[in-house]
Amino acid sequence: MKLKQLESHLGSLQQFDNPKIELEQYPTGPHIASRLLYTADNSFGDVKDKVVADFGCGCGTLGLAAALLGAKHVIGVDIDAESIEIASSNADELELDVDFIQCDIRHLRWRGGMVDTVVLNPPFGTRKKGADMEFLSTALRVASEAVYSLHKSTTRDHVKRTSLRDYNAVSAEVLCELRFDVPQLYKFHKKKEVDVAVDLWRFVPKTSSPKRL
């Protein structure tokens, strides 16, 4: 599937009806989501025929993008039942078979080695400090091959240092810097739309094993 096609599929997905600020629910735009998954698949081979998990999946954009690119098994995880319901109907709409689990990422306990790749657009931690790093830490424990995540560019040094020192990453690389459009979803937003500079990261966990025999 071409990048443009992927982006256009993702553009048709239903997004949050009633976004919850305490969970920092912002939709992952089709532009960013398509580039994240396309790069993971095209440049690194981390999607097609893989087991992919989407942490904090919200309306399912990243996980569904993975499924569109041929991931063999996709699991979307979110704490919020309403989001999962939307994600699940988005999957039906695209005729994709994706598993969803309602779980707090902080309390997730999975048997290791089963998931190849974790993709996530974590809460940026503007409401609850460090929320993005909690997500990243769990992602690096679960993934056996790679983690793709988005973090505000202003936190670049912190993300790099912490992931390498504390979260078992053997490599942490910014693939590109993107503009994250935050539409005026909440009442406290004064401007109509704000652009936030966001880094697209690729992390490799330490337990990474040689791919196939």
């Binding site: 098994h73 598993d99 689990i101 309390h107 306990r109 999975w110 048997r111 089963m114 998931v115």
Partner: peptide, 13 residues
């Protein structure tokens, strides 16, 4: 939920 998912879930209590 597929059995593949079941195969990695464990009680998180």
């Amino acid at each position: 939920m597929r059995l593949l998912t079941h195969n990695m879930l464990s009680s998180n209590i």
